[in-house]
Simulated assay, not measured.
Amino acid sequence: MLRFAHIDFLYGLAAIPVFIILFLVVSRWKKKAVASLGDKNVVREMMPHVSFSRPWLKFIFFILAYAMVIVGLSDPQLGSKTEEVKRKGADLMILLDVSNSMLAQDLAPNRLENAKQAIAQLIDKMHDDRIGIIVFAGQAYVQLPITTDYSAAKLFLSTINTNMVPTQGTAIGAAIDLGMQSFDFKNGTGKAMVIITDGENHEDNAVEAAKNARAKDVAVSVVGVGSANGAPIPIITDGRQTGFHTDSTGQQVISKLSEDMCKDISSAGGGVYVRANNSNSGLDIVMDQIGKMQRKMYDSKTYKDFEDRFQFFLAIAFALLLIEFFISNRKNMRLSGLKLFEVKKP
């Protein structure tokens, strides 16, 4: 099994497109500058030592080396074998709202990203408990089945966005029902759900679904994200904000936290309700309650004897940078003077 000890370093790969764009811009500017001097062939004769292809070759080696450094810093590790281990824990299912209203920015940077950061911090604190993730909008989907693989949980969490559920809405009840189907009730461990939402439920009877979960000893808690005053919902196109959602009259749609709905769900589910803000995600309070759940021994397969592989990537990066360093921007006149395939006229 492959895992990354410092997976956050992989975000550094996002700089590669920026480097490419900058290089293309500079190359285009140089090309225009050379063209302004006169005829291309005459200019080439005036600058016989200048190579127009070697900068591209040096840049390719640089990009490859940079990518290897980033991967090396993330410390890829390979698990050599698995073993059966006994764990004592409980099962926790996170139900995360990914409807468009979660893009509202009354929590920084927005409701969804704020919730994802809080979940990532929660995962870092977990030990033997199992965690799963369900995303929902107009429909609900299992993003991550119940697992003790916290590295995989953070990786799946990082990919969550509002585009992954095609049907808009906030079907909290469907998410609760799907969470109940995802639990293994035969293992006897304590079970709980944490719903992270702005509470704008318009699809189903979430309170009834929470009651059904409580009847099977599954506590349903709710973390409300958003504010009572609300905020407009941004329109994101190709990663950029291009405006705000409006209603049929042209007025901006203001998304507000529906605390009454959140409180009704948590009350019916036998859990707690906490309102998140910029300084407190509310998950710590919820986890204090979940910490009281019954924990039982269960079997789990886990990888062990993970071995670091960062040194291979850093060695490759060093070799690529060494090659790039010795590639000159100027032509080698001795080599360029060799005309091995020129046919001499008699």
Score class of each variant (00 low, 15 high):
Met1Glu: 14
His6Lys: 01
Phe9Leu: 15
Leu13Gly: 14
Ala15Ser: 03
Ile20Gln: 05
Ile21Cys: 02
Leu24Gln: 10
Val26Gln: 14
Arg28Phe: 15
Arg28Ile: 15
Ala33Met: 11
Val34Gly: 01
Leu37Met: 07
Asp39Ile: 12
Met46Asn: 07
Met46Pro: 00
Ser51Gln: 08
Ser51Ile: 08
Ser51Arg: 05
Phe52Ile: 10
Phe52Cys: 01
Ile63Ser: 01
Ser74Cys: 03
Asp75Leu: 07
Pro76Asp: 09
Pro76His: 03
Gln77His: 09
Gly79Pro: 00
Arg87Glu: 14
Asp91Trp: 04
Leu92Asn: 15
Leu95Asn: 05
Leu96Arg: 04
Asp97Pro: 03
Ser101Val: 00
Leu103Asn: 15
Pro109Phe: 07
Asn110Arg: 11
Arg111Trp: 03
Arg111Gln: 12
Glu113Cys: 09
Lys116Thr: 13
Ile119Phe: 09
Ile119Gly: 06
Asp128Ile: 04
Ile134Asn: 07
Gly138Gln: 03
Tyr141Val: 10
Tyr141Leu: 06
Gln143Lys: 15
Ile146His: 04
Ile146Trp: 08
Thr148Met: 06
Tyr150Glu: 12
Ile160Ala: 11
Ile160Tyr: 08
Asn163Lys: 13
Asn163Met: 05
Val165His: 04
Pro166Phe: 00
Thr167Glu: 13
Thr167Ile: 04
Gln168Arg: 07
Thr170Asn: 03
Gly173Arg: 05
Ile176Asp: 04
Ile176Tyr: 02
Met180Asp: 02
Asp184Ala: 00
Phe185Tyr: 04
Thr189Val: 12
Gly190Gln: 05
Lys191Asp: 09
Ala192Ile: 05
Gly199Ser: 01
Asp217Thr: 14
Ser221Ile: 00
Ser221Val: 08
Gly224Phe: 04
Gly226Met: 10
Ser227Asp: 09
Ala231Asp: 11
Ala231Lys: 12
Ile233Ala: 06
Ile233Asp: 04
Pro234Trp: 11
Ile236Pro: 11
Thr237Asn: 01
Arg240His: 11
Ser248Asn: 02
Lys256Trp: 04
Lys256Tyr: 09
Ser258Trp: 01
Cys262Trp: 07
Ile265Lys: 04
Gly271Glu: 03
Val274Met: 08
Val274Ser: 05
Arg275Gly: 07
Ala276Asn: 03
Asn280Gln: 12
Ser281His: 02
Gly282Ser: 09
Val286Cys: 07
Met293Val: 09
Lys296Ile: 08
Met297Trp: 02
Tyr298Met: 14
Asp305Cys: 06
Phe310Ile: 04
Gln311Lys: 06
Glu324Tyr: 08
Phe325Glu: 08
Phe325Thr: 01
Ile327Ser: 13
Lys331Gly: 00
Asn332Pro: 10
Asn332Thr: 03
Gly337Lys: 13
Glu342Asn: 14
Glu342Ser: 14
Val343Pro: 12
Val343Gly: 11
